[in-house]
């Protein structure tokens, strides 16, 4: 095949690249929705059951903390392989976007929970006293003080997490998950298609830069 040496003509690159970008965006989008929905409460729970939190509980804290560490202790590729039976159980398949979403979400939740915990820990402890002393319930304090004061830090955490998920989506490309990673590995690497490889790299770099730039702007706007 001549394509092996010549690579995809530049004019045809967008036809491959754009759907792949769409798949990456879809994968990261779904994963981030799951990550925020589960990682945010988990992070708040880890902080608030810790000694400086609103409901200190050593046992609960140690248990959730251990689970969160579990999700972060394995390299993503290993985690992905290790939980194949679980993935099959949940989505019924071990390849494709659906299958990638499960390990990506697990790793993402564990990562985001830690970021949330750190963001909330940065709030001066007196502010929690303010909430308690002015008659706030714990739930009111979480909503009106912790989430409000930590918002810039949470936005920064979200940015970091989105970028990490783009990276994971590329790794997930190895199990045929589609997206830019799949394209780069299957065309760029295995078929020596330099044009595709270079396009993927440039697109990923631009994507990450744009997300980081946007995230930084949001953080600045949110901080007073």
């Amino acid at each position: 095949m001549t394509a092996l040496v010549l690579g995809t003509p530049w004019g045809e690159v967008p036809d491959l690249l754009l759907p792949a970008l769409g798949e990456t965006a879809l994968m990261v989008g779904i994963v981030m929705a799951i990550v925020v929905a589960l990682g945010l409460p988990l992070g708040l729970l880890i902080f608030n059951t810790s000694p400086g939190g609103l409901a200190p509980n050593r046992t609960v804290n140690a248990s959730i903390s251990w689970i969160a560490n579990l999700g972060r202790s394995l390299p993503f590729l290993v985690l992905m392989a290790a939980i194949i039976p679980f993935t099959r159980f949940v989505v019924g398949t071990t390849i494709g976007i659906q299958a990638a979403i499960i390990p990506m979400s697990l790793a993402g939740i564990a990562f985001f929970a830690r970021l949330v915990e750190n963001a909330v820990r940065e709030i001066p402890p007196e502010l929690l006293d303010v909430g308690l002393a002015t008659g706030g319930s714990r739930w009111q304090i979480v909503r009106s003080i912790q989430l409000v004061e930590a918002l810039p830090a949470l936005a920064a955490a979200l940015t970091l997490n989105v970028i990490a998920m783009i990276e994971y989506s590329a790794i997930a490309g190895a199990i045929g998950a589609g997206g830019l990673g799949y394209l780069a590995v299957n065309y760029g690497y295995q078929q020596f298609d330099d044009n595709i490889m270079i396009s993927c790299i440039v697109l990923l770099v631009v994507l990450v830069q744009v997300i980081q730039f946007t995230g930084d702007r949001v953080v600045r706007v949110l901080s007073h």
Binding site: P124, E126, L127, D129, V130, G131, L132, A133, T134, G135, G136, S137, Q140, S144, I145, V148, E149, L151, P152, L222, S223, H224
Partner: peptide, 29 residues
Amino acid sequence: RRQIGTVFQSASLLRRLTAAQNVALPLRY
């Protein structure tokens, strides 16, 4: 506790809320 107003060292205001919103916090609760 609502009968006991507390004024904290260096005020301890929420940075992301305006003066009015800070004052409103106990009333919201």
